[in-house]
């Protein structure tokens, strides 16, 4: 497993590796994705890696505890289009962490993510995304499809 881990870490390309799935839980349709598990605060949850997405996107239920604990600064009245639908929400600055499955070490990034603001009667039915701005833009990463390995490190 992770046959390139030593090569990439010894040469300071990556600081860790995790393994990805090819679909987000429950996502309908034949959509093959690159889904990694990321820590949002203390919650380990799946996120689609989307280098074409401007922002990371999080389910508001995941961000809410961090906002309530005042562990996240935010800017409201931002809109963002997700899968063809424009949502209103906030850009939130909070910690995401990628965990090396070999050592357990965490690479913590204070990312900027879009969090939709829902009405009380609304449910959020979109996946989480790891996007370029405010997150991947500062991460060095590589994938090995042979092992579904996602190597990551600080750029």
């Amino acid at each position: 497993m992770a046959r390139f881990a030593k090569l990439l870490t010894d040469n300071d390309f990556a600081s860790g590796v995790t393994f990805y799935e090819d679909y987000f839980p429950g996502d309908e349709g034949d959509r093959q994705r690159l889904v990694i598990y990321v820590h949002v605060g203390a919650t380990l949850t799946p996120c689609i890696v989307d280098t074409g997405a401007a922002w990371c996107v999080l389910n508001p239920s995941l961000a809410q505890p961090l906002l309530e604990a005042e562990r996240a600064d935010y800017l409201r009245s931002i809109t963002y289009e997700i899968r063809g639908t424009r949502y209103e929400g906030a850009l939130v600055r909070l910690d995401l962490a990628f965990q090396d499955e070999i050592s357990g070490n965490l690479m913590v990034i204070d990312a900027t993510v879009f969090v939709p603001e829902l009405r009380h009667d609304e449910d959020w039915r979109e996946p989480n995304f790891i996007g370029l701005k405010g997150c991947l833009e500062r991460i060095r990463f590589a994938i090995d499809p042979a092992e579904s390995a996602f190597y990551f490190g600080r750029a």
Partner: peptide, 16 residues
């Protein structure tokens, strides 16, 4: 502040 480039730190943990 919210749009500033992210900073990254590596902290020790235990293997999941």
């Amino acid at each position: 502040r919210i749009l500033a480039p992210p900073s990254i730190t590596v902290v020790p943990g235990t293997a999941p």
